[in-house]
């Protein structure tokens, strides 16, 4: 009998202890952090590790063979004088401005058109969502062939219509062709966000405006647009974040040639074609800091916009 007592005690102890940990984890004070543990673990492994790795090698010259040589800030100096990198940066901004503004304009136009109830609404919506969900890589391979000079469907159609064939991948045009592909894939995003926004606008305000005799254009500018602005912000911020990292549309088409090299492609080329880890890390860190700076500002606006919509 005596031998059993410690066992029992132990079991009790274990039960008590287990519930204590559980209680601490779910207590009012710590519960919010408990919930974050899995996320933070994932991010620590997959984010911090490459970040520190790159930060370290950005001060070294290393091509994955032999010893890494410490070079101080030389890589950063080189980066700021690297014409190719600065050009890629400029092109990325250009693509960003073109794509975001076109998507917004097309999106707003179509949203105004499609926000009413009309027969076949579901069919239109279902079809128009397609581009958003198809793999960007497959689309880039597809468009590469569609825009081919001799056999591409686009030129064949142009020819059949009696028009001249166009060199879609010529140096002065290729970047815009890339923009077209991107816009084609993403305009439904802007469209449907704005459709949802338009449908949620309160009717009575517009009734009142009409009674007051306001012109439709005036109402649109003074009422509709301001009320949609949180959603427009969402579109701008999210698209900016995604566009800065634009990569897949280049992969199946120009592969960075004919003056279409964008930020992520030059980083890819440096890291995965030249395997210049030192310099590639520098580019990565620089572009991370840059995008975070841009996005931090935008994110603040976005959170305000999200708050405002609720």
């Amino acid at each position: 009998m005596k031998a059993e007592t410690p066992w029992e005690t132990r079991t009790d102890f274990a039960v008590v202890r287990r519930s204590t940990v559980w209680e601490i984890l779910t207590s009012e004070k710590y519960f919010k952090w408990t919930l974050l543990i899995p996320l933070l673990v994932v991010l620590a492994i997959f984010m911090l590790y490459p970040l520190l790795y790159c930060a370290y090698y950005s001060f070294h010259q290393w091509g994955m063979r032999g010893e890494a040589i410490y070079v101080g800030a030389q890589n950063y100096r080189q980066l700021l004088n690297d014409k190719a990198f600065l050009e890629a940066l400029y092109r990325t901004l250009k693509v960003l401005v073109i794509c975001v503004s076109c998507e917004l304009l097309i999106g707003l136009g179509l949203a105004l058109l499609w926000s009413r109830n009309f027969p076949g609404e579901n069919v239109v919506r279902g079809l128009a969502l397609f581009p958003l969900l198809v793999a960007p890589l497959i689309l880039s391979l597809l468009w590469n062939f569609m825009f081919e000079y001799d056999f591409g469907a686009v030129n064949l159609v142009l020819q059949a219509l009696g028009l001249n064939k166009v060199y879609w991948w010529s140096p002065e045009r290729a970047l815009y062709t890339i923009c077209f592909i991107t816009i084609w894939q993403w305009f439904p995003f802007a469209t449907f966000v704005l459709v949802a926004g338009l449908r949620s606008l309160p009717k009575d305000v517009f009734e009142a405006a009409r009674v007051d005799g306001a012109s439709p254009w005036y109402t649109f500018r003074r009422l509709t647009l301001p009320m949609l602005s949180p959603l427009i912000m969402i579109i701008v911020v999210l698209r900016t974040m995604w566009l800065i990292r634009l990569f897949d549309p280049l992969y199946g088409t120009t592969r960075g040639g004919v003056q279409t090299e964008l930020l992520d492609w030059i980083v890819y080329r440096t890291a995965f074609v030249y395997f210049d880890i030192g310099y590639g890390s520098t580019m990565a860190i620089f572009s991370l800091v840059l995008t975070i700076a841009v996005c931090a500002v935008m994110f603040k606006i976005l959170m305000k916009a999200l708050g405002g919509a609720h």
């Binding site: 790159c54 994955m64 990292r245 990569f247 930020l263 890390s281």
Partner: peptide, 13 residues
Amino acid sequence: STRMFPGVVAAIP
């Protein structure tokens, strides 16, 4: 912001 880190570079580590 973790999604703003260029994936290609993270790929090597």
